[in-house]
Amino acid sequence: MNGSPAPQPLVLAEGLTRRFAARGLWRPFSTGPRAVQAVTGFDLSLARGEAVGLVGESGSGKSTVGRLLLGLLPPSEGRVLFEGTDLKGLDGAALRALRRRMQIVFQDPYSSLDPRRPVGAQIADGLSIHRLATAREAPARVAELLRQVGLDADHAKRFPYQFSGGQRQRIGIARALATGPDFLVADEPVSALDVSVQAQVLALLADLRTRLGLAMLFISHDLTAVRHLCDRVVVLYLGRVMEEGPTAEVFASPRHPYTAALLSAVPSLDPAHRRDRIVLSGELPSPADPPSGCVFRTRCPHAIEACAAAIPAPRPVGPGAGPGADPGTRSHRAACIRDEIIQVG
């Protein structure tokens, strides 16, 4: 272990929690859920140029995490640090200025572009907001961005409806890259696309990441898409981290029952990879009324009484763990008190 301190992470999230309360004055009379805790105790450390995959099903809170990290939603608890600066302490203008360095690509290619404006103008928005180019310089920069994402420069004058879903996603990526960000949140960027187009856009993202040295948070429900793009993966369930670690390791030997079930549920072309499917029983619990202790216990095939007692904290598993290992190292961790049971090869 060398003595120099680890470089400061680009994005650091500590204990992020986000609650959504019932709206407005009618709170005492509301017949719906009182408060929904979408994310609880989320920690993440993202280094420059690193790609982390955030995986979960519906109700996992993954989209909320993305927005928390960008400061688009204020956390109910915890904090987000971008290059050491706490987002909470910033006033409006400072936060807006910081936005230059972190951007987002959305899931739905049909609602992510303003239908009434030409795409070139929308890509140039970032340039004009942050004064990165004059009105004269902008078209050249837009053309360059379009080429970077694999589109023709003269498409800039066209309107969104003239493009296919895959092309619109590329435009969305161009818009995000316009300000030259260091950190990109990709919120399910290919889920709404055909399989053959998905592969193209994923390849584009991988390429851009290498060329531009982008740090990326890749949010997806599709494990296999994450596999090729990300160095590390974080698995979420009902707003809590179940497992996290290097992608290859987590996929090869998951140590949390949920991760194991998730992996086994993914249909596979290769018969050799069709494991004994772990079919989970039951349904996702209501986020407004989560189970006590480990939230996954109601569906977990290995649950015991102790699982209901306390919320398990993520603890190191895998080869990096063991006595004497530095708990601060970014190793493979799982939030399960029975992680030694899960030995899926």
Partner: peptide, 11 residues
């Protein structure tokens, strides 16, 4: 989403 995109851009 395109409105949120504007927010994310810092408008």
């Amino acid at each position: 989403d395109f409105v949120e995109a504007m927010r994310a851009l810092g408008a």
